[in-house]
Amino acid sequence: MRTYLSPIGFNSTSVTRPLLRHGLDMDDRVVVVRPTEGTDEARSKEAIADVRRLLGEIEPKISLSVERVPHDEFEEAVLYCRDIIHAAEGELVVNLSGGARDVFLPFATAVLSESDRVSRTLCFSDIDGRVRELSLPNLSVELSESVAKTLAAIEQLGGKTSIPELTETGEQAKSTVTRHVTELESHGAVVSEKQGKIKYVSMTLTGELLLGRR
């Protein structure tokens, strides 16, 4: 079972295209998020009706629900969106496309803060109409000084870096560097691959952002 969670505005395509790209099963749920009030309720309802009609054509048993987010206060809207994420059942697929800005920004903030609950993040492009899958950065990590030192060494060496290179650059024991790399991988700050007996490490967006905070 999956829950698809997406803001919705006047353009139903930003919701339906990612659904079609990722695929739907009869026990999936689709939850669309919109403001409690809007400037054009008729167009909003029409967009939701378009999504409902598409789901009915694909699999009539798929559940579609609408969450109305209070948008006057940013903090309240973020927490409301967080609660929607917490209530999602099964695999959570988030669509970061469309919707009113008053809801989209709190929604995106909540998604980033709860990225560990999100299985996949999709995005529909207004420019070329493509659906892309995004890798969300993990922004909730706090690194110790020693682990941060290893991460900085990876950035300094650039590209793919081997454990022996890191050991030499960071002037730390191989076992310490290996332990640090394992921790950084668990946070999504680096990715690694083995070539023969040598392990190579590369920094991710999460790693870049974590270093930038220090």
Score class of each variant (00 low, 15 high):
residue 99 G to H: 02
residue 32 V to A: 05
residue 110 A to E: 01
residue 34 R to Y: 05
residue 40 D to R: 09
residue 90 G to A: 03
residue 99 G to C: 12
residue 64 L to T: 01
residue 92 L to Q: 03
residue 54 L to N: 07
residue 111 V to Y: 08
residue 128 D to V: 13
residue 47 A to H: 08
residue 34 R to D: 06
residue 34 R to F: 05
residue 94 V to Q: 05
residue 62 I to K: 01
residue 90 G to H: 01
residue 126 D to L: 15
residue 43 R to I: 00
residue 33 V to Y: 00
residue 88 A to I: 04
residue 42 A to S: 00
residue 60 P to E: 15
residue 41 E to F: 12
residue 52 R to M: 08
residue 124 F to R: 02
residue 128 D to T: 14
residue 27 D to K: 04
residue 105 L to H: 04
residue 65 S to W: 06
residue 53 R to V: 06
residue 81 C to M: 12
residue 23 G to Y: 13
residue 117 R to H: 12
residue 51 V to K: 01
residue 60 P to A: 13
residue 117 R to W: 14
residue 69 V to H: 00
residue 120 R to Q: 09
residue 86 H to Q: 07
residue 113 S to L: 14
residue 79 L to C: 04
residue 55 L to P: 01
residue 84 I to C: 09
residue 46 E to T: 05
residue 23 G to R: 10
residue 40 D to K: 05
residue 93 V to Y: 02
residue 81 C to K: 07
residue 23 G to M: 15
residue 73 E to L: 08
residue 48 I to Y: 00
residue 136 L to M: 15
residue 103 V to D: 01
residue 121 T to G: 07
residue 27 D to M: 03
residue 115 S to M: 15
residue 75 E to R: 03
residue 118 V to A: 13
residue 71 H to S: 10
residue 129 G to C: 15
residue 109 T to P: 03
residue 137 P to S: 05
residue 122 L to W: 09
residue 112 L to M: 07
residue 55 L to M: 00
residue 75 E to V: 07
residue 91 E to S: 14
residue 78 V to E: 10
residue 54 L to V: 13
residue 35 P to Y: 02
residue 122 L to D: 08
residue 94 V to R: 04
residue 63 S to I: 15
residue 108 A to Y: 10
residue 85 I to N: 00
residue 27 D to G: 02
residue 78 V to N: 06
residue 23 G to L: 14
residue 128 D to L: 15
residue 30 V to Y: 02
residue 48 I to M: 03
residue 137 P to W: 04
residue 132 R to L: 14
residue 18 P to A: 04
residue 103 V to A: 04
residue 61 K to C: 03
residue 77 A to M: 07
residue 74 F to E: 07
residue 91 E to N: 13
residue 114 E to M: 03
residue 30 V to N: 06
residue 123 C to I: 15
